[in-house]
């Protein structure tokens, strides 16, 4: 049976991370499972965790009154969900909903923040990884905003 440490070291987000840090992070992690259609968190919730997706598919949504939820991005195995645990005010910016049965590692935010404060090298390592993801997502969002396929603009 695989341990959380094994799942962690296999997940692309943690690739190349010092094994000592893998053990440290595993102490804040737990395996979780979401049924299809179930909400993982909602906009405005306190950001108590982030998730490393192992299986399944998650929709990141924004709720538009009158239109309902609009999917702005989908995330799959190998990706991470949630970054707002890292910086104040620690509030979720969007809804997240499992589109299919989803299995993930859930990281307790308070536990992680404490470990990052105690070991700034770990904190900086995680910050670099999250910043890279934020950069990629910002770039993707800009490309989406360009609406490049719309020729009738």
């Amino acid at each position: 049976m695989k341990t959380i440490e094994t799942f962690l070291s296999e997940h692309p987000f943690f690739q190349g991370l010092d094994p000592a840090y893998i053990d440290l992070l595993a102490g804040c992690a737990a395996n979780v499972r979401f049924d299809a259609g179930g909400h993982i968190f909602r906009e405005g919730d306190e950001s108590k965790a982030f998730y490393a997706i192992r299986q399944g598919k998650v929709a990141v949504e924004i709720f538009v009154p009158g239109s309902g939820p609009i999917v702005i991005q989908t995330l799959e195995a190998g990706e991470v969900l949630g970054w707002s645990w890292l910086v104040p005010p620690h509030r979720k910016q969007f809804d997240a909903r499992a589109l299919e049965v989803t299995v993930a590692l859930k990281f307790d935010a308070a536990c992680l923040r404490t470990k990052c404060e105690e070991d700034p090298k770990l904190g900086y390592e995680l910050l670099k990884r999250f910043t890279q993801i934020l950069g990629q997502r910002l770039q993707a969002t800009r490309l989406q905003l360009l609406d490049v396929y719309n020729v009738s603009r």
Partner: peptide
């Protein structure tokens, strides 16, 4: 993948580069 999904879409949402 589509840039904008609708209620019936179960596939990817996001730009093709992702």
């Amino acid at each position: 993948t589509v840039d904008r999904g609708d209620a019936g879409w179960r596939g990817h949402v996001g730009v093709v580069t992702t």
